[in-house]
Simulated scan of single mutants.
Amino acid sequence: MIASITGEVEHVGLTTAVVSVGGFGVQVHATAETLAGLRVGRQVRLDTAWVARKDESPLLFGFRAPAEREVFETMLGVSGVGPRTALAVLAVLGPDDVHRAIAEGDATAFTRVPGIGPKGARRIVLELADKLVVPERPAEPAPAPVEPWRAQVLEALVGLGWSEKDAARGVADALDGREELAASGDVPLILRTVLGWLGAAKAGTRTADRGV
């Protein structure tokens, strides 16, 4: 089992990232929140879960903390819950809310996850009632808010012809030091800002190539 990976981020996409480990590019599936915290060219350590199922290609899933991996792996024990659904649960609820919902028997919380209906939500609460208990430890700091605009901006940039790698790098560099703009979540404004940065960077490269 691959319990964790550490290496340089080579690529960040909409649903996966590629981390260079020992000369190999390892593809890792993760939530949008986890991917938003990665930066191309920087080192990262992720807790991981290796999922290999019959008639399906093996997949590696990455998490920011062991608590997320614990919830993910426990969710896989529920009838009808696959790795993508388990990852969606983490993306929508997070480990703390999952523990709370199970402890309180709150099946409604799981219906917020795309693909999980009332019947499936009740089954999750029933099957995990004695498997996921609230950890007896101080509450962990709340994770940083999800940036719902990031996926939209990346998708728009890819649609305009930029590679996912350049788009992800452009978003990171263009918004470096512009926390207020990133916090605003204004997709059109953020997109224009990133496009302006990418255009300027491209023009600068061409100028350098001409020796001007």
Rank of each mutant, 00 (worst) to 15 (best):
I5N: 15
T6W: 13
E10R: 12
H11Q: 08
H11E: 15
L14P: 02
T15K: 14
A17T: 10
V19W: 15
V21N: 07
G22A: 06
G23K: 10
F24G: 08
G25T: 06
V26W: 08
A32L: 03
T34R: 04
A36G: 08
A36Y: 00
V40Q: 13
G41C: 11
Q43T: 02
L46D: 02
W50V: 15
W50N: 10
W50P: 02
R53H: 13
R53T: 11
K54M: 14
E56Y: 06
E56N: 11
P58H: 07
L59T: 07
F61D: 08
G62H: 00
F63D: 04
R64V: 03
R64H: 04
F72K: 09
M75I: 04
G77M: 11
G80T: 10
V81Y: 10
V81W: 14
P83N: 05
P83T: 05
T85Y: 02
A88R: 10
V89A: 12
L90C: 00
D96V: 10
D96H: 06
V98E: 03
H99T: 09
A101E: 02
I102Y: 01
A103S: 08
A103K: 09
G105T: 02
G105W: 11
G105Q: 05
T108W: 01
A109D: 09
T111P: 15
T111Q: 04
R112N: 00
R112P: 00
V113L: 12
P114D: 07
G115E: 14
G115R: 14
I116K: 04
P118T: 08
K119F: 05
R123G: 03
I124C: 03
L126R: 12
E127T: 11
E127H: 14
L128R: 15
A129H: 10
A129T: 07
D130S: 12
E136L: 15
R137A: 15
R137H: 06
P138H: 07
A142D: 14
A142C: 10
P143D: 12
A144Q: 01
E147D: 14
E147H: 00
E147S: 11
E147G: 01
A151P: 00
A151G: 03
Q152N: 14
Q152W: 06
L154I: 06
L154F: 07
A156G: 04
V158K: 03
G161K: 06
G161R: 02
W162G: 11
W162F: 12
E164P: 04
D166T: 02
A168I: 05
G170K: 02
D173V: 01
L175C: 08
D176V: 00
D176Y: 03
G177S: 11
G177N: 00
G177Q: 05
E180T: 15
E180Q: 15
A183G: 11
S184M: 13
S184H: 04
S184W: 14
P188S: 05
L189R: 13
I190C: 10
L191T: 13
L191N: 02
L191P: 03
R192N: 06
T193F: 09
V194Q: 04
L195S: 06
G196V: 07
G196C: 06
G196I: 08
W197V: 01
L198I: 00
A200K: 10
G204S: 07
T205F: 09
R206K: 09
R206P: 00
T207W: 14
T207Y: 13
D209S: 14
G211K: 10
V212Q: 12
